[in-house]
Design a protein around this nucleic acid. Structure first.
Length: 273
DNA sequence: CGGGGTTCCTGGCCGC
DNA sequence: TGCGGCCAGGAACCCC
């Protein structure tokens, strides 16, 4: 389940691989989630950016007048991965593929089809409401403990649900939400977090994300970078996936239960209600 | 318009 | 051994 550290790791590897390449052909799975992918044909990749968990591949029109700058928006979903290979994919889970002018192929593999590959007018994110309404990047200096707190108290939803909403801060998923709440000692189901605890939560969230990025992300099953390597942060998780195991802080057993339909693990002692 | 529920997908795993 | 059933889970989408 790629979150910000995984998507950023992919971005860093992908950018130098495709920058400058021109898309000469494209094919995709018929699902609406991938159908517009071939619209990238006739455009040149000029850079790979990221917002939250979305990859934004800038596309410049190649000479033809009338063409406008486009953007290939890719969300990896749960099982998505991007690869650049010297020959077209034969993988049954290839959902979109683009032939490049040097003969290589960029392609998107996604077993469960929770991902998306959408070509839009540059910056036009109407079709992607979560991207359109995305909160600040976690390392944006404009995001402070105080502004984070103000956003948090603007809703009465549970703190974990707010972390996952992408509106408070961009790029957080189930793994790093649980990890940050564990470090901050906050019960995930709480609807009220004070200003000091909010500031601590943001601080821990930043630490958790930065450390995961340092370790190439968390590979639980399907996450891979373009060159097919895995991350190693899965060996450093304190909370996510450790239900029934001893808390590394207090030694008590971590517990797990769905909160707003999302599996959530926490320490009943360190994260008391 | 915020918030809650539903849906999309398929491999892996569990239990009989 | 084979197989039905269940689970994971981000975000679009629908509805109140």
């Amino acid at each position: 389940m790629p979150e910000l550290p995984e998507v950023e790791t992919v971005r860093r590897q992908l950018d130098p691989l495709i920058r400058g390449a021109v898309v000469v052909a494209g094919r995709s799975h018929p699902s609406a989630k991938f159908a517009s992918a071939p619209n990238a044909v006739g455009h040149q990749f000029s850079g790979v950016n990221r917002r939250g968990k979305y990859l934004l591949l800038s596309l410049e029109p190649v000479v033809s007048p009338g063409r406008v700058p486009l953007e290939l928006v890719i969300h990896l979903g749960m099982t998505g991965a991007l690869h650049v290979d010297p020959s077209p994919p034969t993988d049954p889970y290839a959902r979109a593929e683009w032939e490049l002018d040097d003969g290589r192929w960029l392609w998107f593999r996604d077993i469960r089809r929770f991902g998306r590959t959408v070509v839009v007018l540059r910056g036009d994110h109407q079709l992607l409401p979560t991207l359109r309404d995305l909160g600040p990047e976690p390392f944006d200096p404009a995001l402070t403990g105080a502004s984070f707190y103000r956003a948090l108290v603007g809703s009465r939803r549970r703190v974990k649900t707010q972390l996952l909403s992408q509106r408070l801060v961009a790029g957080v998923g189930n793994i790093y939400a649980d990890e940050a709440l564990w470090r901050a000692g906050i019960y995930p189901g709480t609807r009220r977090v004070g200003p000091e605890r909010a500031a601590r939560l943001l601080s821990h969230l930043r630490d958790v994300l930065a450390e995961a990025l340092d370790h190439g992300g968390t590979t639980l099953r399907d996450y891979r970078t373009p060159d097919r390597s895995t991350g190693s942060n899965q060996h450093r998780l304190d909370c996510y996936g450790r239900s029934g195991l001893p808390c590394r802080e207090c030694g008590g057993l971590l517990t797990s239960r769905p909160i707003d339909q999302r599996t959530t693990t926490w320490c009943p002692t360190c994260q008391a209600r």
